[in-house]
Every structure is written in C-alpha cells, then in structure tokens.
Design a protein around this nucleic acid. Sequence first.
DNA 1: TATTGTTATACTCTATAACTATA
DNA 2: TATAGTTATAGAGTATAACAATA
Lengths: 167, 167
Amino acid sequence: MATRQNAKLVTAVQEAAGQPLDQSLLLSLVGYNCRRAYLTIVPHFEERMKKFNLRAVDFSVLSLLNANPNITQKRLSKAVNVSPPNLAILLDKLEERGLLVRQRNPLDKRSQTLVLTPEGTRLCAKAEKTVSELELEATAMLTDAERAELVKLLQKIFLHDEDDAQA
Amino acid sequence: MATRQNAKLVTAVQEAAGQPLDQSLLLSLVGYNCRRAYLTIVPHFEERMKKFNLRAVDFSVLSLLNANPNITQKRLSKAVNVSPPNLAILLDKLEERGLLVRQRNPLDKRSQTLVLTPEGTRLCAKAEKTVSELELEATAMLTDAERAELVKLLQKIFLHDEDDAQA
DNA sequence: TATTGTTATACTCTATAACTATA
DNA sequence: TATAGTTATAGAGTATAACAATA
C-alpha cells in the first residue's frame, strides 16, 4: 500500500521533472508580463548607472527636475510616486552630493522648489544619454516600430486618467 | 541685488507652477513605461485578491503548482524569482494554510516536490478566474487585439533567452 | 484649520551567511 | 565535495504617525 503510493509519486515526480514548465496562465496576464519585462531591463540599468551612482528613482528625479526646474517637492513626490517622508531623505542625499538645491518658495513659504545645480545638470545629461542607449540594448530584439508600438500600448494603460499632466 | 535675484525666482516658480509636467524623456523609456503600467494594474490586483488573502507571489506559486504538480522547490524558486530562503518561508505559510504539501522526493531525498491540496486547487481556480477578470478590467482601454499585441511584445523582451522553459 | 515638509519609526521585501541532510 | 532546503539575520525599500512652520 505504502509502496503503491510511493510508486505513484515516483512516476509523478519523474513526469514533472521531464516536462518544461507550464506558465501559460501567468503568461496570459498583462501585469505579469509587464513585471517580467521590467525585471529584464532593470539589471541593464543598474549595471550601466553604477558609474553615476544613481538608482532608478534618483535618475527619475534628476531627469524630471532637468525638464521641470523650480517645481515643488509636492509635485515631484506625486510624479515619481515617492511619499514625502521618503522623498525628503532621497533629496537630502542628492543635495549633499551637490546635484540639486532646495529653495524656499517666495510665493508660499511652506513649500520648497527644486533646481539642479550645474553639476546636477551635467550628470543628468550624461545619465540620460546612457539610459537611452541601454534601453535600445535591452530591447534590441524589437524593431523601432515594435518599440514604439509597445510604448504606445503601455501608456494607454496608465495615461488615460493622469493626474499630474497638469496639477 | 537680492531683490532682483528674488524677482527672478518668483517668475521662475510661477512659470513652473503654471506648466504641465514635462515627462517626455522618461516616457520614451520602455522600462519606465513597463513599470508605470505594472503599478497601475497592481492596485486592482490587490483589491480583488484581498478576499483570497493572496499576494502576487503567492498567486504565482499556486498557479504554477496547479499547472505543474510535483515540481521541486528549486525549479519553483527559479520560476517565480524568489530566493530559496525566502521561498521556504512563503511555502511554510501556504502549507500552514493547508493549500499545498511538501513531499520528500523519493528519487533524491535532498529535494522536496510540491503539490496543491484539494483546497489549494479550489482556491487557485477561483483566484485564477478573478485575476483574469481583473486583468480585463485594468486594461479595458485596450482592444483584444491590442492586448494580445502588447503581451507578445513584452514576451519578446524576456522570453528570448529563457532558462526554465526546460531545465 | 489645512498644507508642506520633516523626523522618527515600523513594516515588508530582498539578500547573504551558515547550517542540515542527502548525494 | 556539491546540492536542496532551512534558519537566522541584515539591509533596502516602503508606509505611517506625529511634529514644525506657514497659510
């Protein structure tokens, strides 16, 4: 009896070991595929950005400030999806590195506006160039048309009810 | 002098506040768009899966075991991208909840093979149904053709040098 | 009274080192 | 000696509560 049970298990285990993994359900899910693709690109990002000592969030902050000087921490917080307490710490570090400065907003002294320093601007330019290159590498299996189509479809998902397109 | 500086800042801040955010560089990056789309879908997932008390990883594990009974923890670990120590804890919890069982592999007693219990199978079926529904909701702005195209392009990024398609 | 930003802190996730049992 | 899995623990990332300054 125990033997028959065991024989069944042996067969089942051998069968399972010989089969390729069936991931069909997960692979049908948009969210799952987004995550897998993202996790494929991230290591490329991290490797190439080591020399700038920038994480993905740090890069997003610099790039956003480069394109939008003098925005408040509140707007930045929403845009990069980092809570105010965590953003404060992140900005402390970038400010210590001399990449940006906080200025008291003369129009509302509760808030602070942010600008890159000349050094921050230089670093951002280099980092943006590197990121654009690395993106092409990491998605080299796509044609330009496919890449454009992919970006368009992804944006449909999250841009349809945007908040800080204005705000 | 200080006044002229200040006047300049006032102007710059007013200007910045009046403008919509320029995110053009970030929006050109595939990785950034993948992440944003994923982060848009996640809250839908979490809300609908609360009643099953399943996180995304838990769901992936159940779904994978449902389609691949009797695989080893090692293969599962690679497939869900969770390190063995962390997977051990995750499996402890699912096993305590009576959703799966670990069996010593009779062919190699170092390893353990995993199977869902009847209860685990039932829960998985319900969860899979819910996830498929929620995915359609979260991506309702896409046509079926667009959704299929999106999935195809995302998979091109991460399926081109797969490991555990076999292994 | 409400808002911006900060400090302090807790919680979750992920990563690493050392151990056991088998091979 | 090498591998599967576990335990313990450290570190990073994220979330929450309470506070100061300003509106």
